[in-house]
Design a protein around this nucleic acid. Structure first.
Lengths: 147, 147
DNA sequence: CTTGACTGGTACGACATCGCACTATAATGA
DNA sequence: TCATTATAGTGCGATGTCGTACCAGTCAAG
């Protein structure tokens, strides 16, 4: 493997490990039976607005639509979302947040915050700020160059 | 959510998305039925030496030992590893790479290299080099502060 | 030794993810 | 209009992940 390949390979390796460890850490703070994947959907709807269709969400998360169907059913069972038919397209639906959904997100973030505060003692905010622009650039690249 | 929490939160968010997109990209280059998780185990054995026990691998990847049992059975079925009993502990086993396993890793990397070469046009190696130290620092922190 | 606690691995069941096939609705075009 | 094609969502089966319970082997106390 040549040096350049090794460099990019190392990047994805580090990111994969951090993602795994971070996910495990976060899920230890979530209510029983809820995963990071579920939180991510709620978080997405809060940040970018609800009313999205299931297919739009599946595309945003780069998962098959069957996976999204299942995730939404879990979220609906917990009362975090409400799924209504799409008035503009009879085939489609629209996903709306409920108050419980917003509360779930707020509480999950509040539960995680202390861990991040501890982490900040070892990894100062300056380090994070320095990393984010590069990571965002890579994310944008991958997002626009999907297979 | 206060600014500092938001900063660290954004970091894990970006890393999660990049991990997801990178994984999808990589798996499109792997043979049918093999996932990044399987490749990672082989890659780990090549880089850090084989002969590890299943439990040591499970800890290294931060997955339950039952998950590792399953992953190893898949790799053994493909002929990529050989599992022998541990001469030093009758309860335990040792995992060894086969030639097919090393070949699988080499081919997977070769298949991914062109994608990385294309990526390098938009995201120069300099950017990656600038990111890696910070990411490694975060990875080490999380690795030594597991729940 | 023998007993009791501990550790490495696995069997099994529950849930998550995902590909395939199918239905219902929409859009297109002859 | 009506037939064809495309799109949104779901049911189902296969596989991956993981918690619990269990067995076999090890270790430590006595």
């Amino acid at each position: 493997m040549d040096d350049r390949t090794a460099l990019y390979f190392a990047l994805f390796n580090e990111i994969g490990i951090i993602g795994q460890l971070g996910r495990t850490l976060f899920e230890a703070r979530l209510p029983e039976g809820l995963l990071t994947a579920h939180f991510s959907v709620i978080n997405h709807l809060v940040r970018l607005g609800d009313g999205k269709t299931p297919l739009a969400l599946a595309r945003a998360f780069q998962v098959p639509k069957t996976t999204m169907t299942h995730m939404l059913s879990v979220l609906e069972r917990h009362g975090f979302i409400r799924v209504a038919r799409n008035p503009e397209d009879g085939r489609s639906k629209c996903v709306f947040l409920t108050d419980a959904g917003r509360a779930f997100r707020a509480e999950a973030i509040a539960r995680l915050a202390p861990d991040l505060a501890v982490m900040a003692k070892d990894i100062p905010p300056k380090t994070i700020e320095a990393l984010l622009p590069g990571l965002e650039e890579i994310r944008r690249y991958l997002d626009t160059h999907r297979p």
